[in-house]
C-alpha cells in the first residue's frame, strides 16, 4: 500500500485522522431557511436549520420533491433563500467569488445545455481553469476507468458515460465542498461501485465535505457519516448514521418508515 500523498489539509495520519479542529466553523450552516418559487403555494424549503461539520460525508435523503435539489442549489449559490441565512465556512456564498471556486455542484445537465455541446476534454480544460485544486492526471485516469471517450461531444455519449463525466468533474475538482445531486444516475452497478471506491480513496487522501443526494439508499448508505432526511421542505431527521443504525434499523428501512404517506404501502 502506497502512503497517502501529502494533503492540502495537513499531513494525513496513516491511521486516518480526518476530523477538523474543534474551532473550525461548520462547512454548511442553514439558519431558518425558507425558499419559495414564484407562483407556487408551498415553499420548497420551509424553516430549515441544519449544521454540517467540515469533512462530513453527508447523505441527503428525501422523497421526490422533498427539497433536496433546492437545498443544494442554495449551497451552490444558484439561488438566494427567500428568508433565513446560508453560510459556508461561516460566509455567505451568494455572489462570493471564493465560494464559486470552493463549491463543486454536480447535477444532471439539461438536454440542450451548454455542457452537452462540449467534449469531455474541453470540460476538463475549463475545470482546470476554474478549479484551483483540479487534478488533471486523476481526471484522465478516471476517464479511462469509466471508458469515457474524450473527443466526442457529451450529447453523443451514453447516459452512463455522461454521468461518468459529471462525476469526474466533481471528484477531480477536489472542491472543499462537493455536492453530488443524483450524480451517477444512468451508470450501471459496476460503474457505481467504481465511483464510490474512487470517491472514498480520494477522500482518504484529500478529506473534504461531501453532500450526496440519492434514492439508492441501501446501496449508498455505507458511504455516509451522517444522514439528513428532508420531507416536504422540512428537516425530518439529521444524525450520525451509526447512531441511527444502533436503533437496529438500516437507513433504507428507517427512511421508508418515516416518509411513507398515508395510504401508501411498501413491501
Amino acid at each position: 500500500m502506497q502512503p497517502p500523498a501529502p494533503s492540502p489539509h495537513g499531513d494525513p495520519d496513516p491511521t486516518g485522522a480526518m476530523a477538523p479542529p474543534e474551532s473550525a466553523p461548520p462547512a454548511i450552516e442553514l439558519i431558518d431557511v425558507t425558499l419559495r418559487y414564484p407562483r407556487q403555494k408551498k415553499p420548497a424549503l420551509d424553516g430549515v436549520s441544519v449544521s454540517i461539520p467540515q469533512n462530513a460525508l453527508c447523505g441527503l435523503l428525501g422523497r421526490n420533491a422533498a427539497g433536496k435539489t433546492s437545498l443544494m442549489a442554495l449551497l451552490a449559490a444558484f439561488r438566494r433563500p427567500t428568508a433565513g441565512s446560508v453560510r459556508l465556512w461561516g460566509q455567505d456564498p451568494f455572489e462570493s467569488p471564493q465560494a464559486m471556486s470552493e463549491v463543486a455542484f454536480v447535477y444532471q445537465w439539461r438536454e440542450e445545455g451548454f455542457a452537452s455541446y462540449c467534449k469531455p476534454r474541453e470540460l476538463f480544460a475549463m475545470a482546470a481553469h476554474m478549479r484551483p485544486r483540479w487534478d488533471n492526471a486523476f481526471a484522465t485516469r478516471l476517464a479511462e476507468r469509466f471508458d469515457v471517450p474524450m473527443r466526442k461531444s457529451t450529447s453523443r455519449l451514453s447516459k452512463g458515460q455522461q454521468a461518468a463525466v459529471r462525476c469526474i468533474l466533481g471528484l477531480a475538482a477536489r472542491a472543499p465542498l462537493t455536492i453530488f445531486d443524483e450524480a451517477y444516475l444512468g451508470m450501471d452497478a459496476v460503474y457505481r461501485k467504481v465511483f464510490v471506491d474512487e470517491l472514498l480513496q480520494d477522500y482518504l487522501k484529500y478529506p473534504r465535505t461531501i453532500l450526496f443526494s440519492t434514492h439508492y439508499i441501501s446501496e449508498m448508505e455505507r458511504l455516509f457519516t451522517e444522514a439528513l432526511m428532508l420531507d416536504e421542505g422540512r428537516v425530518l431527521l439529521h444524525d450520525d448514521c451509526d447512531v441511527l443504525r444502533a436503533k437496529g434499523m438500516a437507513l433504507q428501512d428507517l427512511f421508508i418508515s418515516l416518509t411513507l404517506k398515508e395510504g401508501e404501502s411498501y413491501e
Binding site: Q201, Y203, R222
Partner: peptide
C-alpha cells in the same frame, strides 16, 4: 489491514473505519 484497505474492502467511509480501529487501539 490499513484503513485504506478496510475502506476499499467494505466500501464504507473512512471516518467509520477510523472509529472502529481507534476503538481497538
Amino acid at each position: 489491514p490499513s484503513n485504506s484497505q478496510l475502506v476499499s474492502l467494505y466500501g464504507i467511509n473512512p471516518v467509520t473505519v477510523h472509529k472502529g480501529v481507534t476503538m481497538l487501539l
